[in-house]
Write a protein that binds this DNA or RNA. Structure first.
Lengths: 225, 225
DNA sequence: CTATTATTCAATAAATAAATTGAATAATTA
DNA sequence: TAATTATTCAATTTATTTATTGAATAATAG
């Protein structure tokens, strides 16, 4: 070893790599993405990712070893949550980097949305402005608990599962903008398809709640029951 | 497969994981850190990390596959550089996250600096303010090429290797603040030790050139020769 | 053309990580 | 207390990653 500082540097970068290793698995990234939305039990996470519970538990423990998530035992359940909001911001930064550096991401997305109406990349800035002004009906199509945990001020909660039962509550003259968890969540895609099939003027906005938060949109949190 | 969108999500998160895998090795993180300072040849990078050239080349190719770095052939040499300044910012974000989440980082650093004078965590804000005001002599102890590629406005270039020959150029009445590549670069540590041994009032500032840039310090770039 | 030099490639062995399976643990309910 | 449920543990197989080595390639200089 020529350089006497090698051991120090090795030790430091090995620590940095703990974070890197934690985010080097697609499954763990998806877990982080969901945990950005709020705390979840192992069971719920496993189901969301179509993993066995044991496998999900293992991945979660790796995230915990890297101190990116924390746990709390509540009765029979173990609730996992992000250790810090900074972890969510880091995940978002990584997503943005992947989107900007890897053309494949855009390609996979385009391929998935191909042929579906209302999903074409709209003029995002203009749409965001309309949302800001309240000039459109903003629909939060995530499950009610997630809406309660935090939603865009002025947005209406209408979980995808209940959409069919509430068509009559929605305006036919005004544009409807649906959002969900983010660009890779399909809830808003399905919602817009259903709405369009019924003749509504609906469009999807890719941004998820964390993106809106990062952009400084006012977020409303409902009281816990 | 219960969920028909699984394939889409798997494809997306697999792309994200390409970035994660690229930054999951300590060696590749160190390579990125150095490349944040500027372009380098394979040979130089290999030497800096005490790696074989073949091994360094392999790591660099992995970074290139993840589109984090780019290459350019110049004569016999292949020059690697970051593909985008955003990659440097991402690396810094990862470093900050590791520092905040992993207590081990601070511990390793403390252990390394133990017993050395001038390295105690000084009042950073106050010191930065002095640097900003030009109330202290600011020493850039990196190699001259790196100084030329970008340095804090007002800083004097005095590479560690030439320090001994230029003691007489330095003020004995004013405080000297040395900086280098960042908190895990040892150049400024060695410089401060040498200066103190000669009776100068020298302190180290942990921040590296990329940190100063991120903090909005004015950076001066010398004309290429 | 030959020699030199920087880099990459290819093959291998060793280490590490991933998913699967079934058993073990811990908290709760009947 | 026994049964149930959510989670973790441990063992295994399979796949991936890492470092090492020596050969191959490509650009340049003699």
């Amino acid at each position: 070893m020529k350089n006497p500082n090698r051991a120090f540097k090795d030790a430091i970068y090995e620590q940095f790599a703990r974070i890197g290793k934690a985010v080097s698995s697609p499954k763990r990234l998806e877990l982080l993405d969901i945990l950005c939305q709020g705390p979840r039990t192992v069971e719920v996470l496993a189901k969301e990712l179509s993993l066995t519970v044991a496998n999900a538990s293992q991945h979660l423990q790796i995230l915990r070893t890297a101190r990116l998530v924390e746990t709390e035992k509540e009765g029979l359940f173990v609730i996992y949550r992000l250790a810090d909001q900074a972890v969510c911001e880091f995940f978002l930064a990584m997503r943005v980097l992947a989107e900007s550096r890897l053309a494949e991401v855009e390609q996979i997305k385009r391929q998935f949305l191909e042929g579906r109406e209302g999903m074409e990349p709209v003029n995002r800035e203009a749409l965001l402005e309309l949302v800001r002004e309240g000039a459109v009906t903003v629909l939060d199509v995530r499950p009610a608990e997630e809406y309660n945990a935090g939603h865009i001020a002025g947005a209406i909660s209408l979980p995808l599962k209940e959409l069919e039962r509430h068509f009559s509550d929605l305006p036919r003259d005004q544009e409807i903008v649906a959002y969900c968890r983010g660009p890779y969540c399909v809830l808003s895609i399905q919602a817009v398809e259903m709405l369009r099939a019924k003749g509504f003027k609906a469009v999807r906005i890719e941004e998820g709640i964390q993106d809106f938060r990062a952009m400084g949109f006012p977020i409303v949190v409902n009281e816990e029951v």
